[in-house]
Amino acid sequence: MLEGKVKWFNSEKGFGFIEVEGQDDVFVHFSAIQGEGFKTLEEGQAVSFEIVEGNRGPQAANVTKEA
């Protein structure tokens, strides 16, 4: 699992990017966010995740919000 911070997330469109120190930003789709209820992320929020190869390159999977 990697750790990063949410760079930005558009809850209307359901996607955004996660910043990872020393690496390129990683695309995140709302469907990759773990948990119940409305799936969104806040700018600057700490998250842990895995990287998988998507249709358009690397993207986040199994995203969990850090306490």
Rank of each mutant, 00 (worst) to 15 (best):
A61R: 09
N55C: 05
F38C: 06
G16T: 00
G35T: 09
V28N: 00
F27E: 02
F15G: 02
E43Q: 14
V63D: 01
E12A: 13
L41T: 03
G4H: 02
E19C: 06
K7D: 02
A32T: 06
K5S: 05
F15R: 03
E3A: 15
A32F: 06
G57A: 06
F49D: 00
V52M: 12
G16Q: 00
F17A: 04
G16D: 00
G37T: 06
D25H: 06
V20G: 04
I33A: 02
G35S: 09
L41G: 02
Q59C: 04
L41E: 01
K5G: 02
E66L: 15
M1F: 11
A60L: 02
F27M: 03
K7W: 03
E21A: 14
F9W: 13
G16K: 00
G35M: 15
N55V: 14
G54K: 09
V26Y: 05
G22M: 07
N62K: 14
I33H: 01
Q45P: 01
H29Q: 03
L2G: 10
G44S: 06
D24V: 13
K65L: 14
K39I: 07
V6C: 04
G44F: 07
D24R: 15
H29V: 03
F38N: 08
D25W: 05
G57P: 05
V6K: 00
E43C: 06
F30D: 03
M1H: 11
K5V: 06
Q59T: 09
E50W: 10
K39T: 06
V52A: 09
V63I: 07
Q23I: 12
G35K: 06
L2A: 10
E36S: 10
E12W: 15
F30L: 06
Q59L: 07
N55P: 14
G14V: 01
V6A: 03
I51H: 04
P58K: 12
W8F: 08
V63P: 01
F49W: 02
G16Y: 01
I18E: 00
F27I: 03
K13L: 11
Q45M: 12
R56I: 09
E19R: 12
D25P: 09
G22N: 12
G35A: 10
E19Y: 13
E21C: 06
Q59A: 10
K7Q: 03
G35V: 11
S11A: 15
V63R: 01
E50M: 10
V6L: 04
Q59H: 10
E66S: 15
K39C: 05
E12V: 13
D24L: 12
D25Y: 06
E19K: 14
D25F: 04
K39F: 05
I18V: 05
W8Q: 03
Q23T: 10
T64D: 07
I51C: 04
G4P: 01
K65G: 09
Q23N: 11
A46H: 15
A61I: 11
T40W: 10
N10I: 07
V26S: 03
M1E: 08
E66F: 13
K5T: 07
K65N: 08
G44V: 02
E42K: 13
F49I: 04
F27Y: 08
V28Q: 00
P58I: 11
E42Y: 14
S11N: 12
D25I: 05
V52N: 05
S31R: 09
L2W: 12
M1G: 10
W8N: 04
Q34Y: 09
S31H: 11
E50F: 12
G16F: 01
Q23M: 12
D25G: 04
F15H: 09
W8L: 03
E50H: 09
K5F: 06
K65D: 05
V52H: 10
F38L: 09
G16C: 01
F49K: 00
K13W: 10
P58T: 11
S31L: 08
F38M: 08
G14R: 04
R56V: 09
G54A: 11
L41Y: 02
V63W: 00
V28H: 00
E21H: 15
G14M: 03
A67V: 12
G14C: 03
A46E: 08
A61P: 01
F15D: 01
G16P: 00
F30W: 14
S48C: 05
Q23K: 12
E42C: 06
N10K: 08
Q45V: 10
E53Y: 14
V26G: 00
Q45F: 07
V26Q: 02
K13G: 05
G37W: 06
A46S: 14
V47W: 00
V20C: 05
A61G: 08
F27H: 02
V52P: 02
K5H: 09
G37H: 06
K7P: 01
D24A: 13
Q59R: 11
L41W: 02
R56Y: 15
T40E: 09
E3G: 13
S31Q: 07
E50C: 04
G54T: 13
S11D: 07
K65W: 10
G4S: 03
V20A: 08
G16H: 00
V28K: 00
S11G: 14
F15L: 07
E42V: 15
P58A: 13
V52W: 09
T40C: 06
E42G: 11
E50L: 09
F15T: 03
N55D: 14
G14F: 02
N55T: 13
E36G: 10
Q34S: 12
G57Q: 05
A60F: 01
V20M: 12
V47A: 03
S11T: 13
L41A: 04
G4F: 01
N62D: 05
H29F: 11
N55L: 15
K39R: 14
E42N: 10
F38Q: 08
V26T: 07
A60T: 02
I33V: 09
K39D: 05
Q45E: 10
E43V: 13
F15Y: 15
L2M: 12
I51R: 07
